[in-house]
Amino acid sequence: MLGYLASRLAQTVFVLLGVVTVAFLITNLIPADPARMLAGRQASEETVAGIRSQLGLDKPLYMQYGRYVGGLARGDLGRSYQQRTDIRTLLLSRLPATLQLTAGGIFFELLFGIPLGILAALYAGRALDKVVMVFAFLGVSAPQFALGLILLYVFAYRFALLPLGGYGTPQHLILPALTLAVTGAGWYARVMRGAMIETLQADYIRTGTAKGLARRRVVVKHALRNAVLPVIAMIGLDIGLLMGGVVVVESVFAWPGIGQLAWQAIQVLDIPVIMGTVLLTAFFIVLGNLLADLVYPLVDPRIRYG
């Protein structure tokens, strides 16, 4: 177990380094000059050249890369070209908003996904099951940005029940989190349904019912407990998926998180910020995958750490 953990951590570091490398190459391929973006409109060619050398952008690519990775090793993510702020400060100021949104998203996913999945499993093959599954499909297939706008229109504009976007109170969180959750809720419902049907067919459950235990008791006490475990393991993967997809929801709801920061940085080619946001998001994706991998063997004894 410890050995496994160590090798997985090493792998994680390797993957993050890979992400940094790919992101570095891509941002440097973009046909625009960050020094020019900084220099302003009045700048002479010399001014731009001066800024380029100040930022080390006149050095060969491999040296810039070396410097960036060297900085990373010391925990230094660099400074924003535009705002001059330390990237770590910048990321930390945005992270709470994104974490809140992600947590809210997972909450709603589970809130809708699990009961719907159980319902469908208990009525497997019958009309209710079909209806739930259609809803699950709709959720999985809904375009987040359109859904977000429609929720805004209905709940915030027409009926003024919730704030029209922005950040701060729990009320602000409801609509963005709900939008983020719709896709995942459909997905959880499907997984929950599958796991539940499988457990209900398992021998011990059949035995339990055969021995005359009340069906409700069996369902609640045994089947549910076993079926919910794969869902818990899935949360790890989900963290990564949600973190990677917040750009859209944050943009629709003016949510001041990592996604918005990344999007604005791409617009003005603030390379250190782009790198920082990509790295942070990748970190959460990798962390989520790692958690999932660690939890799976706990819930499914057939899988071993390998």
Binding site: Q11, F14, V15, L16, G18, V19, T21, V22, A23, I26, T27, L29, I30, P31, G240, M243, G244, G245, V247, V248, A262, W263, I266, I274, T277, V278, T281, A282, I285, V286, N289
Partner: peptide, 22 residues
């Protein structure tokens, strides 16, 4: 497969946005 690991960890939407910029 290590490369796919890296790409799995890369935020897909940001990757697509950056590629579209290039």
């Amino acid at each position: 497969m290590r490369f796919t690991d890296v790409m799995m960890a890369f935020p897909a939407l940001l990757l697509a946005i950056a590629l579209s910029a290039i």
